[in-house]
Write a protein that binds this DNA or RNA. Structure first.
Lengths: 336, 336
DNA sequence: ATGAAAGCGCTAACAC
DNA sequence: GTGTTAGCGCTTTCAT
């Protein structure tokens, strides 16, 4: 119980176990070529001393940081307000908690984006994860040459240099949602779509159109909005104003559906009686609202975990496909 | 433009600037005693070489990590699903982005809580932040002796050893909410309270009671729930079943209020006409629902920033009061 | 004000 | 299988 300044070092463990520092290092790093007896000896010393390896020293010597950066563009700072991204972060963190990697959370403000760049290139991390609202915002794409990077969301135009990414299958998610409407007998299915300048908006529209035309229905009932309840309400109003009867609605987000709900009620129509509706995201609102909303769940936690799994494999030098698409599932509730 | 393996080192900068490594180090660390000319010289070399100091080496030599851990107990993994915590995390991250500290996000699973402990004590970080749903869960409290720690949320029974914490003023938040009801003329104000085994629940009840009794009203209209919409609905049903007229309701969370909304409508009562209601949290639901919900905003982003500010000051050896209480504000909307 | 030199705690050849 | 020996890139006395 000799009082020691600071924490015990590898050298102290070596002394106590009566072996060399190299051997202790081997044990700590689970090298296969160390006698079982020696391993036991060393582990005992480690336990007695309550030894914890010093990361800085380890990184310096091994030239590995055992750290992974999670970059969140500040414009997307609401990321955390968005349950989808919050869950992605959670998935990443939980996955990494089971590895020896540490997670460095970075808020990359636009103004000093090269502070982030320097950080990533400065040898502070072994790899990086980038999540953004603007899946097109791959301003870090070219860093992919310098260190393993995995993006959340598909780049606008995926080319060879776009790097690795994990995306959600928006096309089939939307198709699933719309098919549900078809299956329950809807014959006039409208959609409140999102902006067409970003992949999710484009893909979901494709999915909706796929299902609608496959069923031999009209694919003209489209109005656009920007994922907010207000936009959803406005779009629904325009849809109703067309004068054509509508018996099914697919909204590109639960928030958009929220706005539509209000307008449908105002019009004296019932859900799902007169109009069945399906949303997208499976956010907190979906389960809470009345009637509860049938919606598409994108398994964001799994997506985050997958992203983390991929950087780690990339760091280990493994080959990983450029694109990884996560499946979506339909959550049936009362609205459709 | 000599091709160099890896990134430029301090030594290379020194060579290029024609000074010693010590001098470069001084410039990098903004030491006051270096001639302006030399500083300029060195900075030029740094810029030309695109030099970025190696963190590991720096930590090893200085015995500082320039990193702060943000610990999130896994039981609270839904933290990210909870807008309040998500915002706290955001506040922390944004604050630290402006400092030289790096943020290490840790999900501490109960099962291997000492992996976390070892990490914190292993010299990996200079300080730590702990946020938890169970503000009573201060299982890391005693680590406060070993390194600066700041908790989010007040400990069950704050004593000298409880360490530093930042909390929201739940008492006055609840008082504010209830007073609003009093001010608009409600004479029979009920509350759907949260569990009384945690500080927020206790404090908000105190605040409600304060305001209600100060107005000379009955303080018996209390029912409990666990912050979910379902519990809110059940509690509201019990409240209505009492047979006493109610014209005002204070719910301990917006989710609780969501449940109450449904029941109030079922009963054919209007909001705020028959019953005015005030929630707590100002979550996404509050603004979306109809009528929009008057609620208490706890400024979670500011709370996160404050926590970060405090650890940094603690790390710098400054004295900081054990408790820091953040103010809350009432957000007026349609429901009250 | 600047330089020389001695490590910080660990890993990684290379010997044995 | 285990020990020896160099560093990894930086900070920091201590001289000058």
């Amino acid at each position: 119980m000799t009082p020691q300044a600071g924490s015990p070092t590898l050298e102290m463990v070596a002394a106590r176990a009566g072996v060399s520092r190299a051997t202790v290092s081997r044990v700590v790093n689970a090298s296969p070529k160390v006698t079982a007896e020696v391993v036991a000896l060393v582990n005992t010393a480690i336990a007695e001393l309550n030894y914890v390896p010093n990361r800085a020293a380890r990184s310096l010597a091994s030239r590995k940081t055992q750290a992974i950066a999670l970059v969140v563009p500040e414009s997307t700072a609401k990321v955390f307000a968005d349950p989808f991204f919050a869950s992605v972060v959670q998935g990443v963190a939980i996955y990494l908690a089971d590895t020896d990697y540490t997670l460095n959370l970075l808020i990359a403000s636009e103004t000093k984006s090269d502070k982030t760049r320097r950080y990533l290139l400065g040898g502070n991390v072994d790899g990086a994860l980038v999540v953004s609202h603007h899946s097109g915002d791959h301003s870090y794409t070219h860093l992919g040459q310098a260190l393993p990077i995995v993006f959340g969301g598909r780049p606008i135009s995926p080319d060879a240099s776009a790097g690795h990414y994990v995306d959600v299958d928006n096309v089939s998610g939307a198709r699933l949602a719309t098919q549900r409407l078809v299956d329950r007998g809807c014959r006039s299915i409208a959609t409140i779509a999102g902006p067409q300048d970003m992949p999710p908006g484009v893909d979901r529209l494709v999915g909706w159109r796929d299902a609608v035309t496959a069923a031999g229905l009209d694919d003209g009932l489209v109005e656009y909005g920007d994922y907010s309840p207000d936009d959803g309400a406005a779009a629904m109003r325009r849809l109703l104003a067309r004068g054509v009867p509508i018996d099914g609605l697919f909204a590109f987000s639960d928030q958009l559906a929220a706005g539509a709900y209000a307008v449908i009620r105002e019009a004296g129509l019932s859900i799902p009686g007169d109009i069945a509706v399906v949303g997208y995201d499976d956010d907190a609102y979906a389960a809470t609202v009345s009637p509860s909303l049938t919606t598409v769940n994108q398994a964001p936690v799994e997506m985050g975990a997958k992203m983390a799994e991929i950087v780690v494999r990339l760091i280990d030098g493994e080959h990983v496909d450029q694109a990884t698409i996560m499946p979506t599932k339909l959550v049936l509730r009362e609205s459709a």
